Amino acid sequence: MGTTNNHRQALIDSLDGLYAELVEEAKHVAKDFMAEASTIEGGTRRQVKILIQVKQHTPQSWGIYWAKNTATPGQPASPLTINKGAGDKYLMATFSSVREPLKTVCRTYEQRLALIRAACRQNRVLRRTLDAHVRQVAKALHNR
């Protein structure tokens, strides 16, 4: 039974490590977006009306969202999360109120974020499945 727990822990740690890498990539994408969006017109820094949030819900659950910046100029960002709906992607219509060229930038970043969200979701599903399988194996080995 000790070997089973060691194998389980190694697999769980590996999945958690991959998940952490995905979350870090999402944070990196959010920073890149903010840098690009804040200097998109004329190279001067300006306030961005839309931003990317990477929020931790539980110790092992993160969310990657678009948000409206409701702060006044000169104040820190005050994000209001935009509802994504079902699935891993925001609808392209989400960005219809954003003016060009920022709209194109948002849509490009959303494609990348959708891939990260899908990989995160699959990772968490695999982790739950692995946990259930290990419990089943432990029960089968315990009943020998």
Score class of each variant (00 low, 15 high):
Arg135Trp: 14
Ala140Gly: 01
Ala77Met: 12
Arg124Thr: 10
Cys106Lys: 00
Asn123Ser: 10
Ser96Gln: 11
Ile82His: 02
Ala93Arg: 04
Thr104Arg: 07
Leu141His: 09
Leu80Asp: 12
Arg128Leu: 13
Thr81Tyr: 10
Lys68Asp: 11
Ala119Glu: 14
Arg112Ser: 12
Ala86His: 04
Ala138Lys: 11
Gly85Phe: 07
Thr94Val: 00
Arg128Lys: 09
Arg99Ile: 08
Gly85His: 07
Thr70Leu: 14
Pro79Gln: 10
Gly85Cys: 10
Ala114Leu: 06
Leu91Val: 05
Tyr65Thr: 02
Ser96Glu: 13
Lys84Asp: 07
Arg135Asp: 15
Thr81His: 06
Val98Gly: 00
Arg127Ile: 12
Gln75Lys: 14
Glu110Val: 08
Asn123Thr: 04
Leu80Ser: 13
Arg127Lys: 15
Asn83His: 09
Arg135Ile: 10
Ala71Lys: 07
Ala86Gly: 04
Ala93Asp: 09
Lys139Asp: 15
His133Ile: 13
Gly74Tyr: 14
Asp131Phe: 04
Pro79Asn: 10
His133Cys: 11
His133Gln: 14
Cys120Val: 00
Ile82Glu: 05
Ala93Glu: 10
Tyr90Cys: 03
Leu102Asn: 01
Lys68Ser: 07
Leu130Asp: 07
Ala77Trp: 15
Ala138Leu: 13
Tyr90Ile: 11
Ser78Ile: 08
Arg127Pro: 00
Gln136Ser: 09
Thr108Leu: 03
Arg124Asp: 03
Pro101Arg: 05
Thr94Pro: 00
Val105Asn: 02
Trp66Glu: 02
Ala138Gly: 02
Asn143Phe: 12
Thr129Asp: 14
Arg107Phe: 01
Ala71Glu: 09
Pro101His: 03
Arg127Gln: 15
Ala71Ser: 15
Ile82Asn: 04
Tyr90Gln: 02
Trp66Cys: 02
Thr81Leu: 15
Leu126Gly: 05
Glu110Ser: 05
Ala93Ile: 07
Met92Gln: 05
Cys120Arg: 00
Arg127Ala: 14
Ala138Val: 12
Ala132Lys: 13
Asn69His: 06
Gly85Leu: 09
Glu100Phe: 04
Gln136Leu: 13
Gly74Val: 00
Val137Ile: 15
